[in-house]
């Protein structure tokens, strides 16, 4: 057994162990912490699978921002969870275990029995890379070859924000999302919230820029920008914007809006919806990505901040 294989087996075992712990542990807060650790280790699995773009996304969104979201919810729900004593009966538990085992076994069997040689679209992607002028195949697929998915995903983000905002009480509608955070002005949190954002913003923009030719892109960069913004919010240095603000709403629709405009222009001037003229493909894609990174950063931040809770004074 080579060192690499041994590492993979250990990594898989730790990931599985964390998954079991997350499911079985009694306290919800511990389960949340387990899930965050799980998310970060799964990013390593993605690296081993040679999918660095996914690893970056998983670490930034799955482990990082998802962790903030779940930990925040677990902290706010701590008191309500104590009164719950409605665990399902033994029969349900056994039935669920059997069902889960069967599902897992069927999937494992399917993975082991997959046909050889495996179907792949990688050669097709390489063949058409000239059409965009970018060499990162994943960015090519995201922004050009399957641009429709990415555009619709931006719309899903918008719908999620509309859903979250619509949960506001009548009095708080149009107000600031989430509680107003306060922190010790001489504490570590405030110190880090002043120190890290300049670095984080540069890293986020770099990840967007380098995404054209290397692993990275608007999602990963946007998640980093969002985390920097959230850090300053949680340290009490800034407040979440009121949801009635037109300027912020404009940022929220900028990404999908520009995407749609470019897509429709493709229908009018070019061959099809979302077909970029090859000569202008790279500038067009970069333009969409710049609008998208802003939209993604603000949307992710506001999704974590939650429903409006405080009316504008």
């Amino acid at each position: 057994m080579s060192v690499a294989t041994a590492f993979e087996i250990v990594l898989a075992a730790v990931v599985l162990g964390l998954g079991i712990w997350t499911t079985a542990v009694r306290e919800t807060y511990s389960a949340t912490v387990g899930f965050v650790a799980y998310g970060l280790l799964v990013a390593l699995v993605w690296v081993r699978l040679d999918a660095v773009d996914v690893a970056l996304t998983e670490a930034a969104i799955g482990g990082g921002l998802g962790g903030v979201l779940l930990l925040g919810a677990a902290a706010r729900l701590r008191n309500t969870e104590l009164v719950l004593t409605e665990a399902p009966g033994k029969a349900t538990q056994v039935a669920a275990a059997v069902l889960a085992a069967l599902t897992g076994a069927a999937l494992a069997g399917a993975v082991l029995l997959l046909p050889d040689p495996a179907p792949t679209l990688a050669p097709t992607v390489v063949e058409h890379a000239w059409a965009t002028g970018m060499t990162n195949p994943v960015t090519n697929v995201l922004m050009a070859f399957r641009a429709m998915d990415t555009m619709l995903e931006k719309v899903v983000l918008l719908l999620a924000i509309v859903g979250v905002w619509s949960l506001a009480t009548d009095g708080a509608w149009g107000g600031h999302p989430g509680p107003r955070h306060r922190a010790d002005p001489h504490g570590v949190l405030v110190f880090l919230a002043r120190l890290l954002p300049p670095v984080g913003i540069v890293v986020g923009i770099y990840i967007l820029w380098t995404g054209a030719n290397h692993p990275g892109g608007a999602f990963q960069g946007g998640a980093i920008l969002a985390s920097m913004w959230l850090l300053t919010i949680m340290a009490g240095l800034t407040d979440t914007p009121p949801v009635s603000s037109r300027r912020w709403r404009l940022v929220l629709v900028a990404g999908p809006g520009l995407f749609l405009v470019v897509g429709l222009a493709g229908l009018w001037l070019g061959a099809a919806f979302l077909a970029y003229p090859p000569a202008q493909a790279k500038p067009l894609i970069l333009g969409i990505e710049v609008a998208m990174i802003l939209t993604i950063a603000v949307t992710l931040g506001l999704l974590i901040a939650g429903a409006p809770e405080r009316s504008v004074k």
């Binding site: 996914v54 996304t57 998802g66 979201l69 495996a118 994943v138 090519n140 998915d149 999620a160």
Partner: peptide, 29 residues
């Protein structure tokens, strides 16, 4: 599906990236 000098088929990768973001927004909701 690793081929053409790539260690992982880029199409499933792109779909997973989209999926991670959608899963996150559904979780937030």
């Amino acid at each position: 599906g690793a081929a053409a000098g790539m260690g992982n088929d880029p199409v499933p990768q792109a779909l997973v990236i989209t999926g991670v973001v959608v899963a996150f927004s559904a979780t937030a909701l």
